[in-house]
Design a protein around this nucleic acid. Structure first.
Length: 104
DNA sequence: GACATGACCGCAC
DNA sequence: AGTGCGGCCATGT
């Protein structure tokens, strides 16, 4: 089922990603106590309103890449927001070693 | 109810 | 280090 509790947990975790840090879909799922729901997290993100309060841009793939097709509009939008927070993208890819949350 | 698709992940080659 | 493949879960056709 698509219980509200699942979406809410995901929203909550995403909402707790600190400024200037990022987390992968799998990490979000794991922290939301929903291991294996990495894909579902993406589904929830897609359903977010355009003007959402959630820091959706801090959610990346496990390898640090943006989940959108490179150079697409959404891709550029997300890249912009990340750089706005002082996150350095190298070749459109974020160093998870440096910015991954949780960690340190 | 089978089959395809998606803002995914991890391990094996 | 790049690619492939199976595994994941919920939706849509």
């Amino acid at each position: 089922m698509d219980e509200p509790s699942k979406r809410e947990k995901i929203w909550q975790v995403v909402n707790q990603i600190p400024h200037g840090r990022v987390a992968s879909y799998g990490t979000i799922a794991r922290l939301a106590e929903l291991p294996g729901y990495a894909r579902y997290v993406g589904h929830v993100m897609k359903g977010l309103p355009a003007a959402t309060k959630l820091p959706w841009h801090r959610v990346l793939r496990a390898n640090g890449q943006i989940a959108f097709p490179p150079h697409s509009e959404a891709w550029k939008r997300q890249k912009e927001l990340l750089e706005n927070e002082g996150i350095n993208l190298l070749k459109g890819r974020v160093s998870m070693r440096t910015y991954a949350w949780p960690g340190d």
